[in-house]
Each structure stands twice: as structure tokens, then as C-alpha cells.
Amino acid sequence: MYPSAIQNYEAPDSVDGAMAAIAKFGDDAHFIAGGQSLMQAIKSRIIQPETLVDLQNVDELRSLEMAQGVTIGAMVRYRDIAANAGLDGRLGALRDAASHVGDRQVRSRGTIGGSLCWNFVSACMPTVTLALDPRLTLGSEARGRREVGIRDFLGEPMETDRQEDELLISIFFPEAAGRHGSAYGKWSLLTDGLPVIGVCAAVSLDDDNKCTSARVSVGGLETGPVRFKRAEEELLGAGFDDLKSHEGAISAAAEEAEIFDDITGDAEFRRQLIRSVGLKSIVKAFERAAAAGADQ
């Protein structure tokens, strides 16, 4: 209900300041971004921070740049992503996810960086980024900046490659020539809830509208989000409107996946959701990629 006592609160206004603050206060210091996950943990006292380093004043983390690829600052909010019409086609999945996380109020606070660093087992952004394959920039006072790919960043659920003193600075989606599309969809019992299953698909098409690369990630599994290699392989060469192959690809992958039962659903139910949510995401990703071609 109420947080346990907090000793220090800092609100630096620069990336260096943020890295310095976390270094200074050490182990029991936590960054707070939108607070939409961290505050839940603090109020239920699962986390009892000695120090909070608030990132809200660090303008650099709020920027979203679209030059030579897209760079999204860690503090860019769901709300900003959902409203950014520039994030279409190739990065359409980001907007699909961002516009359906939680509710309006959560989207006005919650950030992409916070979601990735929290890496909650069924959260949307880890699943989406796993398929979009960005590179992340992290920084610490002691060791400076470094880059890491999303696959290496996301660990087991609630774990990441981020070291205690590291700040996630930005998420970079390199420019890519060609025709690409991505889409994300999720299923939860109540509208816009944490997904029971979320599926992100990202595909590229050649001039004949045949698939040249595909990445499919599935969230909601006990393991955290995973890539569905089988589906990706089967999609290669599939036509953009070849519903049968799309369906076959996701079904085959769903069949193979290791899935558990829990109170939100049995394994067979999840498999079925992967098929139906997955197919929708795949079809939409293909459509977006095909439309990208139409512009050129």
C-alpha cells in the first residue's frame, strides 16, 4: 500500500547526471522512469529502494529521432509512440503495442525504456523489440557507453543484461533498404490488459512480394518472449497474400512450442491463441510491407 521509507531522491537533468547519481548511491538505488511498474513494486514493498533517481527531467532521453534509422530515447512514452505517425510500416508494431498497453493514464507515463528494463514476463515491448531487432545504448559512469543487441539484452523474465549502475539511453532501429512491415497483436481477457499471448511479426518483401526475411516473436510464455524460428523459416518465400502459408507457418511453430498451463489458460488454449493472434500479426505485417512498396 505505502512505500517503505526512502532515503534519497534525485532528479538529474542530464544523462551524465543520471549515471553519476546511480553510481553515487549504489546498490539500493533505482531509476524511476514512468513508474508504472516500479511503483507497483515499491508500494507492495517487493522493492524497498533507498534512493530513487528520477529520469523525468533528462530531456535527452525523451527524444525520438528519425535520421539514418530511428532512435528512440528510453524515456519516450507509449503515448508518444502511439501518436507518432512516422513509426509506420517497418516499425508499425511499435505503435500497435504502444496504443494498447494498459490504459490512457498508463500510456501517458509508461516508457519504452522502462518496459524493456523491467522485462516483465508477458509485457508487450520486449516481444515487439525482439522481432524488430534494435540495438540498445547503455551507459554508466564507470564504464562509459556500450551497445547491445536486443537479444542479448533481454534475459530471463525480469532480468536483463543491464548492470546495476547502467542507464538505458536509447533504442536504435537501423535504416533498412527494401520493403518491410511489422505488426503486433495481443490477447488478454480484458481489453488492453497484460497479454496472455502477444505476437509480433516483422517481414521483408522482394519486388515480387515474396518474403525475404521474417522474424516472429511470441510473448506470454513462461520463458518470456521467444523467437519462433520455425515460423520464420516457413514464411521465407511466402507471397504477401498467401494466407495458407502464413497460417501454416504459425500453426507449425505453435505446435512445436513448449507451453505451460496456468490460471489464465491451459497450454492448448495458448497454442490456439498463438495461431489466431499470430496469423493476424503476420497478415498485417505482410500488408504493411506490401504497402511500403506501393509508395516507392
Binding site: A11, M39, Q40, K43, Q56, R104, Q105, V106, S108, R109
Partner: peptide, 12 residues
Amino acid sequence: EAVKSCLLLAVQ
């Protein structure tokens, strides 16, 4: 902007 005041600290 509409936000939930139970998920913020007053110091923020």
C-alpha cells in the same frame, strides 16, 4: 495529461 496519482510520489 490524465495520470494516476497513486503511482506517483509527491516529490516527483
